[in-house]
């Protein structure tokens, strides 16, 4: 395949639900494009794709995808996806979650999904805030940022989701900003092609709530600043990463060849069924 296949996102959307509910300039829409573009280039049939999402603006994104979609409970999409991926290894399972969904209420599920290394892809849309519920502080809200629950500026240190995922055993960890759509698409392709648990942090913008409240400019200014500020220092010590002049390290941050849990699980199940154990 030399020429990239022509991609029209409308072929992958539930057109009857469009236009989507997101605010003007919301980065989650761009992240959705990157995911569907990756699915298109990987040639995954719509009925072989299952998108499992949690609660939040990020979670709502799944509803617009014309494939198998599963809108679950707050913080639990990884738990639901684990069951689905074990039961239906023929499906490509992708989780869409938010920073609040994945790291606050769902933090425990993330740790164990990373540890198990089941073959699924988790996309965490990080906009540093609880967007859906009106802008409360999240575990990734940068220092001094204003939210409805930090009226004098956030005083808590942030989580670096990528470091957590790698430390917990995720065999693929990457990060990209919505500003770099082709790069984000390529990263998601790599994550979905990886056998095992892949975690991708997508740096997104909540324009209407977080951007407004913190005077970060309109949507174009926010997306232009993505690489320059308001992000945590991260992954500076990954040895084989090329130097990047900004504070935010993007691309594939780590990738390991580890035993995939689903295969082990199915082998054990077959053993039990055969009556030998």
């Amino acid at each position: 395949m030399t020429e990239p296949l022509a991609f029209d996102i409308r072929e992958y959307l539930r057109l009857e639900l469009m236009p989507h509910f997101m605010c003007p300039g919301c980065g989650h829409g761009i992240a959705l494009r990157a995911l569907l573009w990756a699915v298109h280039e990987l040639g995954i049939a719509k009925d072989k794709l299952a998108v499992v999402s949690g609660i939040g603006c990020s979670g709502r994104v799944g509803a617009y995808i014309d494939a198998n979609t599963y809108h679950t409970t707050h913080g639990r999409p990884l738990a639901f996806a684990t069951g689905l991926a074990l039961a239906r290894p023929d499906l490509k399972v992708v989780v869409i979650t938010g920073d609040g969904d994945c790291l606050a209420i769902g933090g425990n599920h993330l740790l164990h999904a990373c540890r198990r290394n089941l073959d699924l892809t988790c996309l965490m849309f990080n906009n540093e805030v609880y967007g859906m519920t009106g802008g409360q502080v999240s575990p990734t809200t940068s220092a001094t940022r204003l939210t409805t629950t930090t009226p004098t500026g956030n005083a808590e240190p942030v989580f670096d989701a990528c470091r957590i995922a790698e430390a917990a055993g995720a065999s693929f960890v990457g990060r990209e900003v919505t500003r770099q759509v082709p790069a984000l698409k390529n990263l998601i392709k790599s994550a979905m092609s990886h056998v095992g648990f892949s975690f991708v942090e997508v740096i997104s913008d909540c324009t209407e709530i977080y951007g407004r409240k913190n005077d970060l400019g309109e949507a174009p200014e926010m997306i232009l600043h993505q690489k320059a500020d308001m992000r945590p220092e991260a992954f500076g010590n990954v040895a084989d990463q090329p130097f990047r002049p900004n504070r935010l390290t993007t691309g594939i941050l780590s990738q390991h060849d580890l035993p995939e849990y689903g295969e082990t699980y199915r082998a054990r199940a077959a053993l039990l069924r055969s009556g030998e154990k």
Partner: peptide
């Protein structure tokens, strides 16, 4: 096209 969050441009 890539950056439109609303898929309004093709």
């Amino acid at each position: 096209e890539w950056l439109c969050p609303d898929f309004a441009i093709t």
